[in-house]
Nucleic acid binder design. Sequence first.
DNA 1: CGTTTCTTTGAATGGGATCAATACTTGTGG
DNA 2: CCACAAGTATTGATCCCATTCAAAGAAACG
Lengths: 258, 258
Amino acid sequence: MPRPVSQIIGMHQRGRVVPHDISDTIKSMLKANVKTLKSGQFMLMEGDETNAVFCLLDGWLAVSKRLPEGDIQIIDIALPGEILEFGSARASVSAVNVEALNDARVAVIPEASWEKAMQTRPDLKRISRNVRSAAQVRMGERMLRLGQGAAAMRIAYGLLELSVRLEAIGEAQEGKFHIPMNQRMLGDFVGLSSVHVCRTLRQLKRKGILKVEGHMSIEILKTGVLREMAGVDLEALRSEILPCDEGRPSVLASLAWA
Amino acid sequence: MPRPVSQIIGMHQRGRVVPHDISDTIKSMLKANVKTLKSGQFMLMEGDETNAVFCLLDGWLAVSKRLPEGDIQIIDIALPGEILEFGSARASVSAVNVEALNDARVAVIPEASWEKAMQTRPDLKRISRNVRSAAQVRMGERMLRLGQGAAAMRIAYGLLELSVRLEAIGEAQEGKFHIPMNQRMLGDFVGLSSVHVCRTLRQLKRKGILKVEGHMSIEILKTGVLREMAGVDLEALRSEILPCDEGRPSVLASLAWA
DNA sequence: CGTTTCTTTGAATGGGATCAATACTTGTGG
DNA sequence: CCACAAGTATTGATCCCATTCAAAGAAACG
């Protein structure tokens, strides 16, 4: 489901059309080393060394952390177009686990190539920053609800966030989308036990706010009510968590689709 | 309490000594526009526009978000040396509140100047990235405990994180430090009610793990036990949440101390 | 078709919130 | 200097939401 060319970065800059070969530089960078992950496979574990930048081309990744007791919290969910830079302050050691939630393809870009590309391509730099700040904002939103919100609010926000992000990349239409996670994982995402995820979803179903079919095929029926439960301004959320470039929606991964 | 010159960035690069006037470029950038904040004053509110980069020179800032119901979650606490970039994906609109927890000084740097400085100073770029990833890692740690940890663990981790970070900038010695927050704010930080913060602190006091005097003067007596409760590897934490450059601890703010 | 994993539902437990009342601290102006 | 006010800490009692335990369906899978 590729997007229209007008939404692909690098094809236009301030009205001028950029030669295709420049855009192809990024394309080739993205295609140089593509890692294929099967559903459930770990791309990275806490403590692993990495000095690469990852661009998610296809599929979902869960970025998570684990307590000594074994409890897991999903810190963030990466969707196609996400740019992942790990390594902590001192060394290039990952502080998180990264797991494929379904079959995924990830472009692995050596830090040096990435740096170089950023210098020659100001649009890439902008996009990188926008993708990063989008991730930061949505993590903040989730943190707010983890700390202060009740179960219904956490679930409501989680679903709305996914819905908004999925719509932007064409993986959701009219509030309908599929989540490649079971209820246990969704619980790890919103900070609830799987049992309580089940109960909360049931409530939403009974109130006619959601429709859930099979394994996590979701349809949001009453956006307004859900929005209210989540305590979020949908328009503001969209503008904050959807990466854009020069005012247009942008998905870096779309470059590798050709 | 300035740090030894050897720890100040820009004075050495791969063994070579850099002329002082280059380092002075950054110094003058930091000093060009310094904003003074009084305790309790807001530097930024959700919805405000900013296209500047902030460097915290002195004092503590709380970065927080608020639910419609009024509940507040402190997303992160900025300490001297922190580099703050706001603005979300699409526009330069802040998604957070930033409040001074005590009297603070912040260098306000126009995005353009910042970009320019980053290009001419690779060390600044490295530091900026390290500071950012440190913030990311500690937010992840807190998110993990917000979602999965009980009250004692949240408090224990919160105190340990602060202790580690404060020691690195000389604001804590031998586990003793002062927190410019009341129990309500500490609760907003770790996701607990003020009442429960009080109870949890009392437990820690009774067990001889902590000493608390007056308004939040803390002394960690049994680091091992606290570390255990927090479920954290102290050494790993240090290496992940303390910004460094070229293997040495670095605090950008120290440049403005001269 | 049996096995495993996942969902659903019930019942009991428990942790933290909330409500409420009492001390303590700090700052203010008389 | 004291009295008062406002904010904060402390503690008890109660309530409620979410976890845990347990068991029975339902779906996926080899």
